[in-house]
């Protein structure tokens, strides 16, 4: 997703000279090419994320389409008040881009887990929150984000995730992408959990369960219509996210379903609110929190069994 993002940005920056990328002294080997190709549209603002975000707001107020880029929580939680007051309050055209959503940097330890970012960003007024599911979605989300005027948070995974979609996708802010139709249950997933969710849905299909799989690449605004439709047409909804169970996709979907009065069963799959004692790579963490395909299948089957 990281590669899709930067390649797309490079191609957009060729034509749109208002695009301005600020990095917080991170992005070795990622943003290097951009910096060499467009030195007038690039700035390394040093290891100082509060200032990076304030500077971005000032540039945006002067007509630029500004991106701040860093990893994990560094561009979001560290300068949170700058995002709230300088960017969101002023509706400044700033795009906050984080790579390493969830446990991408798992082995680096809990300081590098981005597992509350979606909840925190979603709570702010005026900001769009995007978390694409594969490189195709990342490309399309980058394009949509640049076209949109106003604050956006783009949560990316790492480099090298598999493509789930076979071709370019129709990605719109506020819209979901239905990957697979089905009638028994719906899996709503966000970000990099798309691949494991697809694998899980295929295993479930082989067990005779018809699965609708929807990639919720736009957390805010959220595709309420798709959620309500799924609530009416399938009996069970499962949300899958590489994020805390508090405040992310599962919470957002719960809010909509609770108020809809549609009788549908909901189960949230995600990360327990805790700082783990042991570390491992992303795969290890996904297994630990049952967010790998087998874990997703296990939770879904168990939930269906308990409800019978």
């Amino acid at each position: 997703m990281r590669t899709a993002f930067i390649k797309t940005l490079e191609s957009l920056a060729e034509k749109n000279k208002d695009i301005f990328l600020i990095v917080g002294d991170l992005g070795f080997g990622v943003t290097t090419n951009f910096a060499e190709k467009y030195p007038e549209q690039y700035l390394n603002s040093g290891i100082a994320e509060q200032n990076m975000t304030g500077v971005a707001a000032g540039l945006a107020m002067s007509g630029k389409t500004v991106l701040t880029y860093s990893i994990a929580n560094f561009p979001t939680i560290r300068p949170l008040e700058q995002i709230r007051n300088d960017v969101c309050y002023h509706n400044a055209n700033v795009k906050i881009v984080a790579v390493g959503g969830g446990f991408c940097y798992g082995a680096l330890g809990p300081t590098h887990f981005a597992t509350e970012d979606l909840a925190i960003m979603r709570a702010l007024p005026n900001i769009v929150v995007l978390a694409p599911g594969d490189p195709w979605e990342a490309k399309a989300a980058t394009e949509a984000m640049i076209t949109y005027k106003g604050p956006v948070y783009l949560r990316l995974g790492r480099a090298g995730e598999p493509n789930v979609h076979k071709s370019p996708v129709n990605y719109q802010i506020g819209k979901s992408i239905t990957v697979k139709e089905g009638n028994d249950i719906t899996i709503l997933c966000i970000g990099g959990t798309l691949y494991n969710s697809l694998q899980a849905s295929e295993i479930l299909e082989r067990k005779g369960i018809s699965v609708r799989l929807i990639s919720m690449g736009s957390l805010k605004p959220l595709d309420t219509d798709a959620i309500l439709k799924a609530a009416k047409e399938t009996n069970n909804i499962f949300t899958v996210e590489e994020h805390s169970l508090i405040g992310g996709l599962g919470s957002a979907v719960s809010e909509i379903i609770c108020e809809s009065r549609i009788p549908v069963k909901l189960k949230k799959l995600g990360v327990t609110s805790e700082f783990p004692d042991r570390v491992g790579n992303q795969e290890w963490f996904l297994k630990k929190y049952k967010l790998d395909s087998d874990g997703i299948v296990e939770t879904i089957l168990q939930t269906l069994k308990n409800k019978q």
């Binding site: 509060q50 304030g54 500077v55 971005a56 707001a57 000032g58 002067s62 700058q82 007051n85």
Partner: peptide, 17 residues
């Protein structure tokens, strides 16, 4: 502690443009 960073951004934009 917010105004100076935003001011830096505006001043930087002034230089760019």
């Amino acid at each position: 502690g917010h105004g100076l960073s935003v001011g830096c951004g505006m001043a930087y934009a002034g230089k760019l443009d």
